[in-house]
Structures are given as structure tokens and as C-alpha cells.
Design a protein around this nucleic acid. Structure first.
Lengths: 242, 242
DNA sequence: CGAGCCGTTGAGGGGATTCAAGCTCAGTGG
DNA sequence: CCACTGAGCTTGAATCCCCTCAACGGCTCG
């Protein structure tokens, strides 16, 4: 909450690496559909940013004027309910476009908070608009991203927001596994974060994690890292679904 | 589930009434931004459809090739979880564009089911695409609608999917009030539908409704209709939020 | 009229929350 | 070096909310 640290320019990144042409996530990213010259122009306008874990990429209500592509790490979207509680409504992984509402000249609808250390690419709205005017493929790509965000929200709602606590936790682990860049280890949220994602008390989240550990589904490596036994996880999920 | 009745052509509607030019919901609808000649061309391609309560506007997995504007009634989006349970993840009211994923030539992501008797306008994908190519305003309008669907999903997730059962029910009533066309009466879902929306047992939903009735928050007029006392509702909500 | 569906209400049990106490661990300063 | 501190994780015990099971009544429909 009081985390003041916000976005920091990546000072140790040489200009070349900030070129979209060389970016590793380009095939997954918004401008992946652009050709050579357009891509170079667009890449000149984008700014790489690093956000430490807990920092905000943008805040609800801000009139940001930019969209962001997640280059590494995991970003969460937070809302505050009318009763003042924090709810995490969705996660975004590598390659995801976030803050799209800025394209409508609308303030951001939610807080976008870095779960892990995060690198994003800031893309000014004007850059997107300029390319959109001439590139039907980019317009299509934008729509595709809006739709996938919508579907992710629907699935979150269906799978992670309801049902027995154990099932929700298992689903969360499966989801985090999909989001993890390297296949072996996943980001392990704090109990409070799990609580905000699944709508559970932090104590309940802790109990469930402990239980998964004892079952060998989860191997906790550090406070924020763990490995999952994929086989046991899917077996446990199947049992919970029955 | 076994409701076989699907979409029916509105045979009693004269051709003139199917013209978007005269449509009452035009200002709220997708083509509201189009000018005279484009509007007339577009309206020629659209088909008005009536769907009885419980019928599907489209089904998950269908390659529909069309989007729909809700002209009257309320539509719900259903998903089936991996455990085989039905979850309602969002509602759409008058003026809302649904089935947008068809624009990506993607099968529909969810079931769209009529909650009440519903009238929709079927708009072929080609019609939207043709106009989009020339009309930046329409492209913008499309993006706006995608974003509002995303925000609705986020709010549903934050307000209706978690917290105490009573609070969720109150929130649902407030939401239904906003969706109701005429200010006086709202659509009252069946207890099973409430259960699928809020993640409660139908019995719990029944108990809560009965309780709201005794408190004078809700006046049940028929099986599917009720009036809400706006003052008492917001008072009850404030107490529940405290 | 009986069958079946839906809504209502009660009783009982179970799962999640709440309250509370230890615990580990990193950071601090004597 | 080590007590001190505070934050987060874990675990226990008691409570409460919601679910499950069950019975009953009203309604529609064959």
C-alpha cells in the first residue's frame, strides 16, 4: 500500500536492446505484426521500464496516455470494493498488453501492480493510433488482445472465484504454472495476495499451502518461489473436480 | 438445459421497424455512430431476432459469424467449470454488443442465454468489417464496447463473486436495478440462476430473498418480477459494507 | 388428479473465518 | 555478538456462516 517506488527507467539497458526488432517477446507482443520500417519507427517511441515487486505500473484513475507490454514478470489487476477491500481480479504474464483503456482516452480502470520484478514496454497511445490508422493487421491484433483479456476475466471468475477453497487454490497453482516463464519454478504469492485473489482468509490460504506441501504437490523454495509437481497437481485437481 | 427453442425470426415485425434508422436503441448501439447512407446499408444486412427466456442467442464453441446488439431484455453469459458446474459470469442489458469474438473469426467463448424474453439484432461480421475499414469512429466504438465488457467482468468479479452472501445478494439487486429498462420493476432471477451468479446454494439464495422481502427491500410481484425499494436497498448495502 | 418443478423453511453438519498464540527471519542498534 | 523488533507464516481452538439433506406447499401440465 505504502510502496512509493514506482517505475524506473532501465538505465543499464543499451539502446539497441530497447529496439523492438531485437526484443525476445516480439512474436508475442502487440507490434509483432508490424513489418520492418513501421516497427522501427514504433520502437523508437516506446520506453522500457522496470517496476520492482509491489510497485505500480499504473494506478486506477490515472490518465496515462500509454499502453504497456509485459516483457517479463507478472502483473496483477486490483480493485477496491465499495466495502474497502482489495480484490485481485486478473493476472497478466509475459507478452500481455495492459492498460488498453488508455487508447480510448479513458483513465485506467484498475490498479496494475507488479507481482514479481517486472519489465514493461511503455507505448504511447499516439504511436498505437498512428499505426492503427494504416495497419488493419494491428487493429485486428488489438481486438484479439481485448478479447483475450475478456476471456481471462471470465475464466478467473468461473474457476478461481467460487467453489471450495481447496479447488480454488489448486486452480490458482495451475494458473501460476502457465504464467511462469521457466517451466520449473513458479511465483508463489504471499498469503495475503492469495487471499485477495481467491477471496479467502490469509490463514486459510496458509493452511491450504501447507497441506499442498505435505502432499508433495508444492515444493516451496523461498518466500516467493516454489515448484509444482505437475502430475500430482492435475491428479489433485481431478479429485477436487469429482 | 434441454431448452431446445432457439432464435426465432420476428415475423410480426414490419421491415420498416427493422431499420436501424428508426430503432429506439440506436443511440446506445454500435451503429449509432454511423451516418445516413452507411447506416441504411448496414441496417439492410442486420436481422432482428426474438429469443424466449431460457433460449440461447449463441452457444459456446459455435462459429457464429455475427455479433448481436441487445434491443430488449437481459442476456447472461454462462460457463461450465471443469467440475461441470454452471457459472454465470456477466449480464448484458439493452444496447450492449455481445458475441464480439466473432469479429476475430473465433468461435464464441461462452453461452449467451436469454434471461428474460429478449430481442437482439444480428449483425453479420462482414457488415461490421466493411464499415470498420472506412469508419474510424466505428472502430473506436468497437474498442469502447470491448473495454466496457472487460470492466463489467472485473466489477462482477470484485463485487458479486466474493464477500458475505447477503452483501452479494444486495449487490446483485442493485445491478439488476441498473439493468432494468423501466425504473419501477426489475427482473427477478430464479433461485437457481441467483445461485449460478453468486456462487451460493439455491436454498441460501431463497433464504436471502425471503429475508429481503420481510425487510421491505424487495417486493416480489411474480416469479420473475419484483420491485426494489431503492432507499432501503442502499441503506442495507451501506450497513453490509461497514 | 397425480407428477414434477420450484420456492420455502427447518435441522444438522462441515468448512471457512476469526481470534490468538508461537514461530521464523531480516533488519537494527546496543 | 546478540537481544530487540516487526512483519509474515503457521497452527490451534472456537465460532459462525453457508451447505446439505429433508419435508412441505403452491403451481403448472399432462
Amino acid at each position: 500500500m505504502l510502496m512509493k517506488a514506482r517505475v524506473l527507467a532501465l538505465q543499464d539497458t543499451p539502446p539497441a536492446a530497447s529496439s523492438c526488432t531485437l526484443c525476445l517477446v516480439r512474436p508475442k507482443a502487440l507490434f509483432g505484426v508490424l513489418g520492418g520500417s513501421e516497427l522501427q519507427q514504433a520502437s523508437a517511441a516506446t520506453t522500457p521500464l522496470a517496476v520492482p515487486a509491489g510497485g505500480k505500473v499504473y494506478a486506477q484513475g490515472e490518465a496515462g496516455g500509454a499502453v504497456f507490454t509485459v516483457r517479463s514478470g507478472i502483473v496483477r489487476f486490483e480493485r477496491v470494493t465499495s466495502s474497502g477491500e482489495c480484490r485481485i481480479v486478473r493476472l497478466a504474464g509475459v507478452g500481455t498488453l495492459i492498460g488498453q483503456e488508455a487508447l480510448l482516452r479513458t483513465p485506467y480502470a484498475e490498479d496494475a501492480v507488479a507481482c514479481t520484478a517486472v519489465e514493461v514496454c511503455r507505448i504511447p497511445v499516439e504511436t498505437v493510433e498512428r499505426n492503427c490508422a494504416q495497419q488493419p493487421a494491428l487493429r485486428r491484433e488489438l481486438m484479439r488482445r481485448w478479447q483475450s483479456a475478456l476471456e481471462a476475466a471470465g475464466e478467473w471468475n468461473a474457476e478461481l472465484a467460487r467453489g471450495h477453497a481447496r479447488r480454488r487454490m489448486l486452480k490458482l497453482m495451475a494458473h501460476l504454472q502457465q504464467l511462469s516463464a521457466d517451466g520449473s519454478s513458479i511465483w508463489l504469492p504471499s498469503r495475503q495476495e492469495m487471499s485477495d485473489m481467491l477471496g479467502l482468509a490469509p490463514e486459510t490460504a496458509s493452511r491450504l499451502v501447507s497441506h499442498l506441501r505435505r502432499e508433495g504437490v508444492l515444493h516451496v523454495a523461498s518466500l516467493t518461489e516454489a515448484r509444482v509437481d505437475a502430475g500430482r497437481l492435475s491428479a489433485a485437481l481431478q479429485r477436487a473436480d469429482a
